[in-house]
Design a protein around this nucleic acid. Structure first.
Lengths: 159, 159
DNA sequence: AAATACATGTTGCAAATGCAACAATCTTAT
DNA sequence: ATAAGATTGTTGCATTTGCAACATGTATTT
């Protein structure tokens, strides 16, 4: 009975969890951009996310970083170019599996700006988590992870 | 004790729910694009989402649609240009609050392609929902809505 | 009534992003 | 051993997107 009702229901894409996710993500991005504009920082929000990723994954090559941030190699390289030019990361040639790679590491001045920005955003960040109960937050994160894993099995992110 | 530990924890942006949301949204987008490539459709994924929005909100003007899809007026107008050129929507001049506006409606051929694509995506869509328990799905949607509402109070989406 | 402010939509320009093609290097196959 | 294929990174080009400026028409203020 209930299943029949569910099957009969015409499903609009814009009512789907996927699309809700996309909309919600846009809100998050808008918030991040606003925060950055207020702080008037030396790096863009995208560079900030990449810098944070680099600091969490020392010694990764560009392609592995690209997989983490879900951008293609070209784009990843360009963001790293900018970060290197600003002195927040350094790249060095190395070999991985007998392949030439450029490994990326954060510099001291990169650590400084990352920590400064992270501390600035900490309050909003905590505020954001506090709108959920501890339990709901766990469920939210687990659900997002489930979505990513489910999609991974359908489409392989060609990076 | 536990609260102290939480407060002391350095919070990486890339560990935040916001960033997880962004990543997950990218997966969803990749899936949508893959589905569209397989079907080799006449419209793009973005146009599909806009067409669905138009079909759910009859007689809206462009700016109100822009608010729904979270794009600026310029971009919204361009997507509608394309959809109109393809015959899937029609625009007509009208007045709202004594203001000249262009109201947008879906055409019969727009209904046809929307229904066809929706039916094609129905299976994946259901599969997607089935990875959650009914309860977790409700919590997920409620949480996403909470995020949007919380951000709305901090940053006003200038559209 | 004239001027200022506001709302809606369009155009131009710049930045971001992805895709395809390429270079260089290594591995595998015939 | 030579050819084909795979991996990593870069460059060029096209598309998408947003922001600022503009055009048009309305509301408000002085």
């Amino acid at each position: 009975m209930t299943t029949k009702e569910k099957d009969l229901k015409i499903m609009h894409y814009t009512d789907s969890p996927s699309y809700e996710l996309e909309l919600t993500s846009k809100y998050c991005k808008a918030l991040l951009i606003k925060l950055f504009n207020q702080v008037c920082s030396e790096i863009t929000p995208e560079e900030f996310a990449v810098l944070d990723t680099v600091s969490c994954h020392k010694g990764f090559c560009q392609r592995d970083l690209a997989k983490l941030i879900l951008r293609d190699r070209a784009n990843t390289g360009r963001v790293l170019d900018s970060l290197e030019k600003k002195g927040f990361i350094k790249r060095s040639n190395d070999t991985k599996n007998n392949r030439l790679v450029r490994i990326v590491n954060i510099t001291p001045s990169g650590e400084v700006i990352l920590k400064e920005l992270t501390l600035r955003f900490q309050p909003i960040h905590e505020k954001m988590c506090k709108i959920f109960s501890e339990e709901d937050l766990l469920i939210l994160r687990a659900s997002l992870k489930k979505v990513r894993e489910a999609i991974s099995q359908i489409v392989d992110m060609q990076i």
